[in-house]
């Protein structure tokens, strides 16, 4: 059986909020290392990969592999019944029909319990190759979100170009064009504002801003975001979570001229 307790329901609320517009039905794959999720969007352009390690829970118990097939809009409805600071316990039997979510208020005696019916989801699992990215940009997540939002007003696509000069987000649309260039920046007083660019070779790729803006819904989960690029492979946008856990989004590039 599965029993996993999160100190704050907020984490799961935010994760589900961040991915629910991209993927609808998905398996939460539970085993003794934690809870993992991998799902593609309907158009097979983007891939979500989430890992909540067992250390992110306390306690965490999962005796055997359990796939919880859950509709994210149903899960959202139930998670709305939890306060951010509630303790959240997820429980399921070994071959479950339902998953049980329990919310406990930390400072009152309220205890809420909900069951969500599970679905059989036949999901294709993709092997994601280990990649040494040519460029990794670490920047404040709100800054990335703002760039995506601003450029979306002008165009459907953004080119991301990393050179030793910095990283340039540029777009070209009907009303004109725009570009934002960031250089490495280190602020001792305010490390959340740091911008780090690790570059082994220059990269230039074009991506859909609609998808990038969608990924940015995860901005509330982490102060900074890693944007990893290599020529001719999908972009990785990674939000690090506590206890070595993560929420990753992969986006296939736009190609041709």
């Amino acid at each position: 059986m599965l029993e996993a307790r999160l100190e704050q329901a907020e984490l799961l609320k935010k994760v589900v909020d961040a991915i629910k517009d991209l993927v609808q039905d998905c398996n939460f794959d539970c085993n003794d290392s934690g809870v993992a999720l991998q799902a593609m969007d309907n158009s097979h352009v983007a891939l979500v990969s989430m890992m909540l390690k067992s250390e992110a829970f306390s306690p965490f118990r999962c005796d055997r592999n359990i796939a919880l097939g859950i509709n994210l809009s149903s899960l959202t409805k139930v998670l709305r019944c939890a306060q951010n600071n509630d303790i959240l316990t997820v429980k399921a039997e070994d071959a479950p029909d339902v998953v049980n979510l329990m919310f406990e208020s930390s400072d009152s005696d309220r205890l809420s319990e909900y069951d969500i019916k599970l679905m059989d989801i036949d999901q294709e699992h993709l092997g994601i190759p280990e990649t040494e990215y040519a460029a990794t940009v670490t920047m404040p997540s709100p800054e990335f979100q703002r760039i995506c939002r601003d450029l979306s007003a002008l165009s459907e696509s953004v080119s991301i170009e990393c050179t030793k000069e910095g990283v340039k987000f540029a777009c070209n649309g009907d009303i004109g064009s725009g570009a934002v260039t960031l250089r490495s920046h280190s602020d001792v007083e305010n490390p959340d504002q740091n911008i780090k660019i690790d570059l082994t070779e220059p990269v230039a790729l074009t991506f859909s801003l609609k998808y990038l803006s969608n990924f940015c819904k995860a901005s509330g989960l982490a102060k900074s975001v890693n944007i990893c690029l290599s020529n001719e492979v999908p972009l990785l946008v990674e939000y690090g979570l506590a206890a070595n856990s993560y929420l990753r989004f992969y986006l296939a590039p736009k190609i041709g001229d």
Binding site: H125, L126, G127, P234
Partner: peptide, 14 residues
């Protein structure tokens, strides 16, 4: 114009 590629052309089914 550029066209959108699919994620499945980069990552293979396991």
């Amino acid at each position: 114009a550029r066209h959108q590629t699919n994620i499945t052309s980069y990552f293979c089914p396991r």
